[in-house]
Design a binder for these strands. Structure first.
Lengths: 246, 246
DNA sequence: GTCAACCTGTTGTCCGGACAAAGTGACCGC
DNA sequence: GCGGTCACTTTGTCCGGACAACAGGTTGAC
């Protein structure tokens, strides 16, 4: 009854089997080999055809359900959902998002210095106000146009962090390469209107709508390792979120 | 080494065991019995103490990891993360969010009618423009103050949906009771400034910052069952999102 | 004293099996 | 034809076990 995308698993690969399966199903959805509304083979059938156990296949499908790509119904089967038109918000920097969609990100580093933490940033990082932190202020452009002003605070000094690196790389990429593994982030999204300074930086009129996002990121030891306070031109940018239940 | 919150499981309950465990750990975090930074017992120890298998306990903890409440580290253990100050965005209506935090939600129903679908709504629902749909426009107040203007489109008629019901209940609650089970929603979040009409409704100045959210919701058969286009007063409302990796 | 090898504890992955719950459709009696 | 019952399929939950990968501490050699 169902459709079975061609999948191959490599048992000698260090990549977990469930992840290989999940990625290949996701790829089949992206390429259109699996269209919205299509019904997948049952978990048991997929497991048999791949020589895997049902829990492994189930774990793979579970990942895609969490990402909102497919839905399961007991007694019925597993079905492909309509693809979102645009990328979802993930734990990647704006830089990566833009680069992936081929929109030529560029960065002006306006500040990179060790400064006493402002009260707001200190509170988010769980530090006392005035504690020395690394502060970064960047203007992000896409295809030449200003897109966002991004302010970040880092509790620890990060040696590889230089103006030159930030001109071409996203902050999260640099942090990952420095061994800082961010695994959870809490974001608050709001809106405001541009004041004179913001308007000048973003080449908007005063009073233009801006999207604001504050983000506190944690590593796997539970420590806050980054706080960001960003403003985006609402006329050029919006955020995508997928929410799932159960 | 670790801390073990007091948990009891009821094997005769229809509620899945892993869910009982997850909820009780989450409750212990909320009440402060488990503080940020605390280390949980190992999965094996918890499983033994509850008379459950390790996969079941692991499934419970996995849910909390997905919700960004705790982090796991291989070879080390499982640790409680700092609590978010405010509720996260979930698949609940604004009404439920407000009611839960005790902020007296009220609703003015501005429109409830069967109308031809506007092109934007029709596209989101996967219908042809002009297809008859149920349209709802509501003004949501909190503690007397206007908070948001919410416009919703539903492809199917929902008999229990009346003005009286909407005055006291959230839309999602009504849909759930009508047997419509929403399990995935895609949201796009942006910002704009208030025009004269919006300003009058929301009791803001013209040009005030507004947060916009468009949401397409799907049921477990993969059909779009609701489209919403909402605007919030940015001065009174912001959205919370937790993002996790892996 | 220093450093490497080892040991232990923990989570990550994977297996095979079992039963329950829910949806679907066929069958049968009426 | 109609309605209810039953069987079947499929996902949901749970078990017990096994080994691998990783982090951290301990021990031992040099």
């Amino acid at each position: 009854m169902g459709i079975r995308p061609r999948i191959e698993v490599d048992r000698s690969s260090p990549i977990p089997l469930y992840f290989q399966v999940a990625e290949q199903i996701a790829e089949a959805i992206r390429t259109g080999e699996l269209a919205p509304g299509d019904q997948l083979d049952s978990e048991v059938q997929i497991a048999e055809s791949l020589g895997l156990s049902r829990p492994t296949v189930r774990q793979a499908i579970g990942h895609l359900v969490d990402r909102g790509m497919i839905v399961r119904r007991r007694g019925v089967g597993t079905q492909i959902l309509p693809m979102p038109v645009r990328r979802e918000m993930e734990l990647t920097s704006l830089h990566d998002d833009l680069a992936r969609s081929g929109r030529a990100p560029a960065t002006d580093v306006l500040l990179l210095a060790r400064v006493p933490a402002e009260p707001e940033a200190a509170a988010a990082l769980g530090l006392a106000a005035g504690t020395p932190v690394t502060k970064v202020v960047r203007l992000r452009r896409s295809q030449g146009e200003p897109l966002a002003v991004m302010r970040n605070w880092l509790p620890e000094p990060v040696p590889p962090l230089t103006e030159e690196v930030l001109e071409t790389r996203g902050l999260y990429e640099v942090l990952r390469k420095a061994g800082i593994r961010i695994c959870v982030a809490r974001q608050r999204i709001g809106a405001c209107t541009a004041d004179a300074e913001q308007a000048a930086l973003l080449e908007e009129r005063r009073g233009a709508a801006l999207l604001t996002m504050e983000r506190t990121a944690f590593d796997d030891s539970g420590r806050a390792v980054e706080f960001g306070s960003h403003i985006y031109r609402a006329s050029r940018y919006s955020l995508e979120v997928t929410v799932t239940e159960h």
